[in-house]
Design a protein around this nucleic acid. Structure first.
Length: 673
RNA sequence: GGGCCCUUAGCUCAGCGGUUAGAGCAGCGGACUCAUAAUCCGUUGGUCGUAGGUUCAAAUCCUACAGGGCCUACCA
């Protein structure tokens, strides 16, 4: 049995292949890579899994639209993710033994999923039940309480009525065990405010979950019923297990995820595992979203950002630094090209890059390129600052507070800059006498040694830069230090380990981080971004989005849901739409969106109608207005009130409804046809 | 409707009961020259969302309100 005490296993989500990689995927993945690198330096045998989630009706349809088989289609997109992570130096399962890339279409994965199911079945947590409901194809989920004709609350696509025998997981049985988990293991869900959310959700009661789908073929078949395939989440979550199956690495130490998939990881997944009697992961950490200049990134807004263009212009390390330094990890954060370039210039070019440049240059000019020995005796004035930086960075990384860790490291950089100015090595170099020479030695050694510490501390976030700096300082060639900075052990990192006499390199021609001109670099990134968007669209077999799509135009183009199935005039005349006059309107208690209306449609008594328009209209705006009412719709209870009809309003996804109205006078009760 | 979080300098944030409220960036003035028009020093800038309350003491605790965000129920 492999020893599991010094192992650390973390995962990113496996990404859904219905979209090509964008900066949100990159954010999660680079954070995971940073954690993995830190854990490695702490002495853990750290393994990182990422991958692609490839099953489901949505994928099946996307594939078909492009004229490909699901298998061909998912391979193309999966390879794109793989290529991307390799290009950005994040995950490369081909060459790095610490990396895993799992696809849910991997044959090995079938076993895991079926096994997880069978264990749950043995333990009595699976049962079969007939179910009719409205199915949201996009979300691959039934929408509770929905009726024929409804659209998806998430994406506005029409729902489909599906009746089938499904296998259900007794999620309801796990309410108490889950609550015990959250209380017994308070850091199971992080950050704390997410834990609160999850706990309240679970306290509100859990309904059993359908975990199989009939009438879908693109999925993993149930071992007991080949007419059904597994629900995508049951399938996808299990991949974390498959990726390290047989390695003795389960349970995972950390699932790093975005906040939008918290429930699946913090509620469903541990419940599935408990049901099977398998160990549950130790921690789920949900980070926030990247907003684009404080707007949600979305295709319809045309403001999606991808990592590759940024990588091409400033290098991936600039992006890594920016995202981890600028945004407190766990919270939503704003991405903007201005802030990106600003951070790059002030912290990386002027800060770390310039310090390295001036230090190496002085060692060359004053000491022939060899690190001088510090005078024996008292500690360098920088030793305390370095110790402080080591402690702050370790604590920050440990808690995933990357911005705090980096802030601590940059405090040291700033100390060194001050130190150099105070010592004035350029004056010492001109002065005669052994005292000046000794002070100059001490100064140069201090600066170089501080940079060595900085290189080690930065290594999780800036791996390539750290290694370059490490080599420039001659550490890689020394006999007492590891040749790779990533092999430095945190526990032994301390002041004074840079051997005197090390030969240092030079940065004269190729600065660590060349200062960027925003007016040149930002347009360049935007240009490449547009090209990448087109290339990705082509890859997915979709119509390329218009480059730099203006918000208004794209909303009308991309947000309008596809047409419903064709109907005949006979179908249409079944719907009786009347002109009605709103007599009264009042809010419905305990409902944000509902208004209770009395509408005269020419009948003896006014109709009572409950409508979900409270966010768009105030009651007093409606009274006296003429509206359109579907008069022969079956009554329905809503929040305790019966609604006898439906009023017509237009809306787009997420937008507020706009009531249909007339420009000319119309008599109440007139029928629309 | 129920619940959670946030609101501190122009910007991003730290401080979470105890000296005159901090950092970085941006701005302004100066110094220096080893360095990537860099760095260093000095400096401008805040009624800590608003109003009450608890306390010897509140940005920090409590209540209400306003604005922003999120989870959840209700869109026939």
């Amino acid at each position: 049995m492999p020893d599991s005490t010094n192992k650390y296993y973390l995962t990113t989500p496996i990404y859904y292949v219905n979209a090509a990689p964008h900066i949100g995927h990159t954010y999660t993945t680079l954070a995971a890579d940073t954690i993995r690198r830190f854990k490695r330096m702490q002495g853990f045998d750290a393994v990182l899994t990422t991958g692609t989630d490839e099953h489901g009706l949505k994928i099946e349809r996307s594939a078909r639209k492009t004229g490909k088989s699901p298998s061909e289609f998912t391979t193309i997109v999966s390879d794109e993710f793989r290529r991307q992570w390799k290009l950005l130096g994040l995950v490369d399962a081909d060459t790095n033994p610490q990396d895993r890339f799992i696809r849910t279409t991997d044959p090995r994965h079938v076993q895991t999923v079926q096994e997880l199911f069978l264990r749950n079945q043995e333990n009595g947590y699976i049962y079969k039940r007939s179910y009719t409901g409205m199915y949201d194809v996009g979300e691959e989920t039934f929408v509770q309480g929905a009726k024929p004709g409804d659209v998806s609350p998430v994406n506005g696509q029409p729902l489909e009525e599906v009746t089938e025998e499904n296998y259900f997981f007794r999620l309801s049985a796990f309410q108490q065990p889950l609550l015990d988990l959250y209380t017994g293991q308070p850091d199971f869900v992080q950050p704390d405010f997410r834990r609160n959310e999850v706990m309240r959700f679970v306290e509100g009661g859990l309904e059993d979950l359908s975990i199989s789908r009939g009438s879908i073929s693109w999925g993993i078949p149930l071992p007991t019923d080949d007419g059904q395939v597994f629900y995508v989440w049951f399938d996808a979550l299990s991949s974390y297990y498959t990726a390290v199956d047989g390695e003795g690495r389960w349970p995972a130490d950390l699932h790093l995820i975005g906040k939008e998939i918290l429930r699946f990881h913090a509620v469903y997944w541990p419940a599935f595992l408990m049901g099977a009697g398998w160990p549950i992961p130790r921690k789920v950490f949900a980070h926030g979203w990247l907003l684009f200049e404080n707007d949600k990134m979305s295709k319809s807004r045309g403001n999606i950002v991808r990592a590759e263009p940024i990588h091409q212009v400033m290098g991936i390390e600039g992006l890594r630094y920016f995202l981890l330094r600028e945004i407190p990890f766990g919270h939503d954060g704003s991405f903007s090209y201005d802030a990106l370039v600003q951070r790059f210039n002030s912290d990386l070019a002027n800060g770390l890059g310039n310090l390295a440049s001036r230090t190496l240059s002085m060692i060359h000019q004053y000491r022939g390129g060899a690190v001088p020995a510090p005078p024996a005796g008292e500690d360098s004035a920088l030793a305390a600052a370095a110790a402080q930086a080591i402690a702050t960075a370790a604590d920050g990384y440990e808690k995933f507070e990357f911005s705090r860790a980096l802030e601590g490291i940059w405090t040291l950089i700033s100390h060194v800059d001050k130190f150099i100015v105070e010592r004035k090595p350029w004056t010492l170099a001109k002065a005669d006498g052994p005292e000046s020479a000794a002070l100059l030695d001490d100064t140069l050694y201090g600066a170089a040694e501080a940079l060595r510490v900085v290189a080690a501390l930065c290594a999780p976030v800036l791996p390539a830069t750290a290694q370059r700096l490490w080599d420039l300082l001659g550490c890689g060639a020394s006999s007492t230090l590891p040749s790779q900075v990533r092999d430095v052990a945190w526990s032994s990192l301390q002041w004074g380990q840079l051997p005197a006499g090390s030969t240092v390199g030079t940065l004269a021609d190729t600065p660590l981080f060349p200062r960027l001109k925003p007016e040149e670099v930002i347009p360049r990134m935007r240009e490449l971004e547009a090209e990448t968007a087109v290339a990705q669209a082509r890859l997915l077999g979709k119509e390329p989005e218009p480059a730099e799509a203006p918000a208004v135009a794209s909303e009308t183009v991309t947000l309008s849901p596809p047409l419903a199935d064709e109907i005949t005039i006979d179908d249409f005349v079944k719907v009786d739409i009347r002109v009605g006059l709103v007599l009264s309107a009042e809010p419905v208690p305990k409902a944000d969106k509902l208004l209770h209306l009395k509408v005269d449609i020419g009948e003896a008594q006014p109709r009572e109608i409950v409508a979900g328009i409270a966010l768009a209209y105030k009651p007093e705006q409606l009274i006296g207005r003429k509206i359109c009412v579907v008069a022969n719709l079956a009554p329905r209870k809503l929040r305790g009130l019966t609604s006898n009809g439906m009023l017509l309003a237009a809306s787009l996804e997420g937008g507020s409804p706009v009531l249909a109205a007339f420009l000319e006078e119309v008599p109440v009760g007139a029928r629309l046809k």
